[in-house]
Write a protein that binds this DNA or RNA. Structure first.
Lengths: 140, 140
DNA sequence: AATAAATTTGTAATGATTACAATATAAAAT
DNA sequence: ATTTTATATTGTAATCATTACAAATTTATT
């Protein structure tokens, strides 16, 4: 997807009005390199070895800040499962009910026609599919 | 939307392999007559006066059973907020970020083109929009 | 170097959901 | 009709994710 190095992440955060602390850079970097829309716990566990002082509160604070500034999206397919996505371009998510993996897919969400009047101001559009992925359907 | 009476709900539940206990009938009836995609807590509070012995666990059990049997859908727009919807036809949800209300809207979700191969088995499609609703945008 | 501002951290509090065992109800068998 | 069996409901406790908050640390400013 993207391939920013440390300095570029720093610049990217600053451009978006976020002071680039070490923790923030590392959390963004991790999101950037993970393709499975990680949960808070996964992010925390992945970084705690390298940043031994890291607090889970910091992960929450940072993710909420990123969302507020619009550089990541929250992905909620099932109610109890909150995931995060650095890819804020127009795309959908598919979750496999068997293995739990979340796949990205392309879709022209912008083009979807609805009966919402023009007086509705739409800020975000999300498309979620659920089912069984190819590798799981082969196994059965 | 639908307009089933007591006896019809009973039949409807039985058709879907659900034994129609009093609690299950009343919970389904409440969902049927509410247009705002209620949360568990709202369902519980709405029924506790009429069913004083009602337990919140029963509400959870019942909703999970309904989902399992496919007669309701879980609606998750934001991670921490789980709502339920008896309307299992093809439609989208719009949530107002100001007043929090959830609106239904029509959309041809089935027609959306994606790059998911045919080997993906899709069981459910959901479309979520967020923004500001007409009555809230007028106020500002 | 001193002060102020912002960030991180750890602990405690909250709230939603589930696990589980006991009770109550309904269905089946005698 | 009574006993037995299965199913559903209930209440309490446990779990888990998230937030609140204040103290400690780091960074920026004077």
């Amino acid at each position: 997807m993207k391939n920013l190095k440390m300095d570029n992440i720093r610049d990217y955060l600053m451009t978006n009005d976020i002071k680039p602390s070490y923790q923030r850079i590392r959390i963004y970097e991790y999101l950037m390199n993970s393709y499975d829309h990680p949960r808070v716990d996964e992010i925390y566990k992945a970084l705690i070895d390298e940043i031994p002082t890291l607090s889970k509160t910091t992960v929450y604070n940072t993710l909420n800040l990123f969302i507020e500034k619009g550089i990541i999206h929250m992905v909620t397919i099932e109610g109890t499962e909150v995931r995060y996505d650095v890819d804020i371009s127009d795309h959908g998510h598919f979750k496999c009910d068997v293995c739990g993996k979340v796949y990205d897919f392309k879709a022209d969400i912008v083009e979807i026609e609805t009966n919402l009047g023009e007086s509705f101001i739409i800020n975000q559009k999300d498309l979620f599919f659920r089912g069984i992925c190819p590798s799981c359907s082969v196994k059965n």
